[in-house]
Design a protein around this nucleic acid. Structure first.
Length: 768
DNA sequence: CTAATCGAATTTTTT
DNA sequence: ATTCGATTAG
């Protein structure tokens, strides 16, 4: 036990050894947040305050859950079984599988990912002749998910106008359709569990008593439903020697756009009578100048819980700032600097290039590719989201639950088997008429269409029969073959990769089987006998028998159902690729939680970062500032920031001002590498072919530059930074006319775009 | 039923 | 610029 607490600083120690009370830990970036969380669990168990079964630890991502589990097993000699550590969705899945009857779900309910949900809504709109101009599927989805996150069912919404009335109606229809098909979306997993526990008192009390200690990671990212879910789970825990231990950082709240509510931190403090607000402000990651920059920047936000990072590491190097003339040149510069870093001995994987939006990666990728520097781009398609994998999954879903219409439609004619839109329309009408699934409606179809559809049903049934006694990996292999997917991609030109991905699914299944504790020989389809042996029965005080969702999922559901849930809940990582000695390219959002010796923050321009659409939203700029804060605090030793005078966006050249965030950073912590770039790099010399290569790669670029250089002989240039008494700083975007009749279009950022007469307007040239 | 073509949209992302 | 979806032509 002693060594558990060794090397903790006073605040960390205080947090880890808090008495069982509700607590809020304000954990700054790099302050040892995960360490505190895991050590707290280990300490609680080692001091005998709680048994592993009394621990519930909730995270947002599977990655975080895994990390916690790994660290815990290193700390604790005992096995981690019995502890519930997982994502909100993963834990809800587990609860719903066990209590499926009380939750009014089929035991092998399937989980819709966002893609499936959207396609289902599109189908619903079509079936109900809803004008999708007036009600875009995305809007409907947004409406449904939002209300689920507020804990509201369709019947509980008071529509305030005709449009909303329609949306409510669609929400209701959507839920009915899901219920018919036996599928749930992500928000539904949470809401269904919430409702189950709200209405079922014995069940609720059972879990409340069981989970004496609930720990939540990244609390600032919780949405309202998740907060209420936690409230329900915590119950009266505090009075009974239990507690809710929430760890978060309001300054790193960057997911408001997807429903996260930072306000939950303040609400938690008040509602749970938090007596222990502990701030972890000692930073173990970054050098002084980097922290100074982060602290000063974030001080510009209002409504903070208040926190200032400090370090013992010394000032370190200043933040290097560079102004480029174009996005291409910005990329060139990044590569030069990265090369220098590598030459100095930096590992490539310790160099991260961050950007605000994915579109920015192209130019940088291109430059890296030309320079022959290996790189890895985060984000993009995850394994289980690839089209061919989704197809294979759909076949498996149909074998497990043929009434999943999304799965049915995805593969009914893939590979093509002569079932077209016409046939499907008829089938959908039949299904609509009888209120049954598409699969169940097939027997009502006659003629040629009926034959084709019947063939498909026979195929699915055939594979189902053939594989009923097989272990999961074998089942997957046979399905891939029998579905015709492998044969189909074999005929395709670009099919080799897809076949490889499909074959990987067999190994994914093998791995899943061994990790989840399914006996190798267990048949992938499992009948009701699984149900009989599930979990240990618990009888509560009222004599109500409760089945604790503690048993391995293997005993509650068939391997196939479990594998399908796994595929939906854990889309597979695209970020792993560890050991790859490559530069790391990613958005600032996906950099959250990571750290690197060397970090480049690119595209620091008004309109890009902060993003232009953020200024329209309430509190939008503050969220952008937090995003910038996250970006800065990723760096350990060296931080670079850069921006560009011109940038290609959506096929058009844009002229942005440098980001307002530069004005919010301490001057003494910055080192301007391009101190007096008063003009474009080409201003003092004739553009050469190499320059054109560097900046645009085409002869056209030279012509463009020269044209810009002249700019109507007004003495001003496009792209030049200027200041105006009334509008503030701006960038010349365009110049029209010549001589005394010369007007310039100037982007004043927040003050807007203005057209000014150059002979009248008093403009001042800006240094940079 | 497939292929081609045109048009609209284009911050950030996990489950 | 590019991608994705929907409509239209073969």
């Amino acid at each position: 036990m002693q060594n558990l607490l060794l090397n903790l600083n006073p605040e960390q120690l205080a947090a880890v050894t808090l008495p069982p009370q509700n607590a809020l830990i304000l954990a700054g970036a790099g302050s040892g947040k995960t360490r505190v969380l895991t050590t707290r669990i280990a300490w609680l168990i080692q001091t005998g305050q709680v048994s592993p079964a009394g621990i519930l630890a909730v995270t947002f991502t599977n990655k975080a859950a895994k990390e916690m589990l790994t660290r815990l097993s290193a700390m604790l000699p005992i096995n981690t079984r019995g502890m519930w550590i997982g994502t909100f969705h993963g834990l809800c899945n587990r609860l719903l599988r066990t209590h499926y009857r009380d939750a009014a779900l089929p035991q092998s309910f399937q989980i819709l990912d966002s893609q499936d949900q959207l396609s289902m809504i599109k189908r619903l709109l079509k079936a109900n002749n809803v004008d999708d101009e007036k009600y875009p599927p995305k809007t409907v989805m947004y409406f449904i998910n939002n209300h689920k996150e507020q804990g509201l069912r369709a019947t509980q919404i008071e529509p305030y106008d005709a449009i909303e009335r329609k949306l409510v109606e669609l929400y209701d229809l959507y839920d009915q359709q899901c219920q018919r098909e036996g599928v749930v979306d992500f928000a539904e997993l949470l809401l269904r569990t919430y409702e189950l526990l709200s209405r079922n008192q014995p069940l609720r009390e059972h879990y409340q008593q069981r989970f004496r200690h609930i720990l939540v990671d990244e609390f600032q990212d919780t949405n309202n439903l998740q907060y209420n879910w936690l409230k329900l789970m915590a119950g009266h825990g505090a009075q009974q020697g239990g507690a809710l231990f929430a760890v978060g950082d309001d300054d790193q709240s960057i997911y408001a756009f997807r429903g996260a509510n930072v306000g939950n931190m303040a609400a938690f403090e008040a509602e749970f009578q938090v007596r222990n607000l502990i701030k972890l402000e000692q930073n173990y990651r970054s050098h002084g100048h980097i922290l100074d920059a982060a602290n000063m920047l974030i001080a510009n936000n209002s409504r903070r819980l208040g926190k200032n990072l400090r370090t013992d590491a010394g000032h370190g190097e200043q933040v290097r700032v560079y102004e480029a003339s174009s996005d291409l040149q910005e990329a060139q510069w990044i590569i030069e600097e990265a090369k220098n870093l590598i030459a100095e001995g930096a590992s490539r994987s310790e160099i991260a290039v961050l950007y605000r939006s994915n579109a920015q990666s192209r130019v940088i990728e291109h430059a890296l590719f030309s320079a022959g520097i290996p790189y890895h781009v985060y984000g993009g398609l995850r394994y289980f989201q690839r089209a061919e994998i989704k197809h294979a999954i759909a076949y498996l879903q149909l074998m497990d639950n043929p009434h999943n219409d999304s799965a049915f439609l995805r593969v009914v004619n893939f590979p093509a088997r002569g079932i077209g839109a016409r046939t499907l329309e008829q089938l959908q009408n039949a299904a609509e008429t009888y209120g049954i699934s598409l699969y169940a409606a097939v027997p009502y179809m006659v003629g040629k269409a009926g034959t084709a559809l019947g063939g498909f049903v026979k195929l699915v049934e055939g594979v189902r029969f053939e594989t009923q006694h097989m272990a999961l990996p074998e089942l997957v292999r046979v399905t891939l073959e029998a579905s015709g997917l492998l044969a189909h991609y074999a005929t395709e030109k670009e099919g080799a990769d897809r076949i490889e991905n499909l074959e990987q699914m067999v190994s994914a299944a093998t791995q899943f089987v061994s990790e989840e504790g399914y006996g190798q020989g267990a048949p992938a389809h499992m009948g009701p006998q699984a149900e009989a042996q599930a979990g240990a029965a618990i009888v509560n005080a009222d004599g109500v028998e409760i089945l604790d969702a503690d048993a391995p999922l293997a005993t509650v559901m068939s391997p196939l159902s479990a594998f399908l849930a796994h595929a939906s809940l854990e889309a597979g990582d695209n970020q792993a690729q560890a050991g790859q000695e490559a530069l790391q390219l990613m958005t600032v959002h996906s950099a959250k939680g990571l750290e690197f010796d060397n970090v480049f923050i690119t595209g620091l321009e008004e309109g890009l970062f902060p993003h232009e659409s953020s200024s329209k939203e309430e509190g939008g700029v503050e969220e952008e500032r937090r995003l910038m804060y996250v970006a800065i605090t990723r760096a350990r030793k060296r931080l670079y920031m850069c921006f560009s005078q011109t940038r290609m966006l959506h096929g058009q050249t844009r002229y942005n001002m440098k980001s307002r965030f530069f004005d919010e950073l301490p001057e003494k912590s910055l080192k301007w590498l391009s101190p007096k770039v008063q003009s474009h790099w080409f201003a003092n010399k004739k553009p050469t072919w190499e320059d054109a290569q560097l900046s645009g790669g085409s002869d056209n670029a030279i012509a463009q530059r020269i044209a810009q250089n002249k700019a109507g002989g007004s003495g001003w240039r496009i792209g030049e930074s200027v200041a105006h008494a009334k509008f503030g700083e701006g960038v010349i975007v365009n110049i029209e006319g010549s001589g005394s009749n010369c007007r310039a279009q100037i982007n004043f950022g927040s003050a807007g775009m203005k057209v000014l007469d150059l002979s009248v307007a008093k403009l001042e040239r800006l240094g940079r």
